[in-house]
Write a protein that binds this DNA or RNA. Structure first.
Lengths: 162, 162
DNA sequence: GGGTTGTTACTCGGATACGGCCTGTCCGAGTAAGTTTGG
DNA sequence: CCAAACTTACTCGGACAGGCCGTATCCGAGTAACAACCC
């Protein structure tokens, strides 16, 4: 059980987009080159974000992406679920129904104990991700990255925006 | 990101094994037929449990599996990790290293903020699973399953043990 | 009758096959900004 | 000088290929309990 690499890409791209000046857009090409990623494939991840309504997009030159909401109103979970999907990590195939001793027509209601516990663990994971906002990530990043590198990186990427 | 079906199978099988009388073993065949699962493939899940040291096995007739420890000393996490592997759900490919503005030879130490947050979420999931013991599952199951079905199921499966 | 041999039933591990999903690439359609052209 | 047409650069969506992994099956090797056999 492993998250697809697009999740990592989407999170890093959102961190960049969070620092974008109002009204400007960042192209897939700029984001791909900055992170050293295949442009065409990264585009798929950004499309997922767009489809989920987390980013806005504009066509034409100087087009690209920008966040649809301020970073403080975007959670990790939203970004991850946009790319990875909202399916629970554990799917119960209800194998208890195959019990040969089960009385005819007997139908247990609700999820079994196994599914319930796995669901709680899944929810613990999601709750943690829901509690972290994109603005928290930006705050962490700007703490652990030298101010000089932070500034020059933004210049570099803004240079490639229209 | 979805857990393999073997995880569900292993958990249900462990629940059955937890009620096994001392000194007896349960064969793959009995467990497979009881749950309506392909015997050969279920065997792979049980082999994983065996390799992780969670169950003991005996060859020959009346052979099979039994728990290596009492159910109160077996956690959900151990069972799941035995089948699913211990790899973290999020792998950081360290794409920050591709930043074109990164000074030559500059090497950031430790995981980046994204990896750290994802790691914390992963740990929240594991902590929940670590807190649930196999004996807790058995207690839940015996509450939600009619006593009669519980008893007859055990008779059925013990009938198929040597 | 006791020890030896053979049979049976099981686990274990490897080999193999198939399908689906993740990864990655390519290309055409549509759109918006800037440039050129024509009146 | 202004408006229309053209070019450019980007997003979007679909199509497609390759590879890995989960699912599933089959089979041979090894082992332990039991049955049969022989001295």
């Amino acid at each position: 059980m492993i998250l697809k690499s697009q999740v990592e890409w989407a999170l890093h791209c959102c961190a960049i987009l969070a620092g974008l000046p109002e009204g400007r857009y960042l192209s897939t090409k700029a984001l791909a080159e900055f992170h050293g990623l295949p442009k065409e494939y990264l585009s798929k991840a950004l499309q997922s974000l767009s489809q989920a309504g987390l980013v806005h997009t504009t066509l034409g030159p100087s087009g690209g992406y920008r966040l649809a909401r301020p970073p403080a109103e975007l959670t990790f979970l939203e970004i991850i679920e946009a790319v990875e999907g909202r399916a629970p990590t554990f799917v119960c195939t209800n194998i208890r129904a195959n019990n040969p001793c089960r009385p005819q027509g007997y139908c247990e209601s609700g999820p079994c104990a196994v599914a319930r516990i796995m669901g709680e663990a899944d929810e613990a994971w999601r709750a943690k991700l829901r509690s972290v906002r994109l603005s928290d990530l930006v705050a962490s990043l700007s703490q652990e990255i030298p101010a000089e590198l932070w500034r020059s990186s933004f210049e570099w990427v803004l240079d490639r925006a229209g």
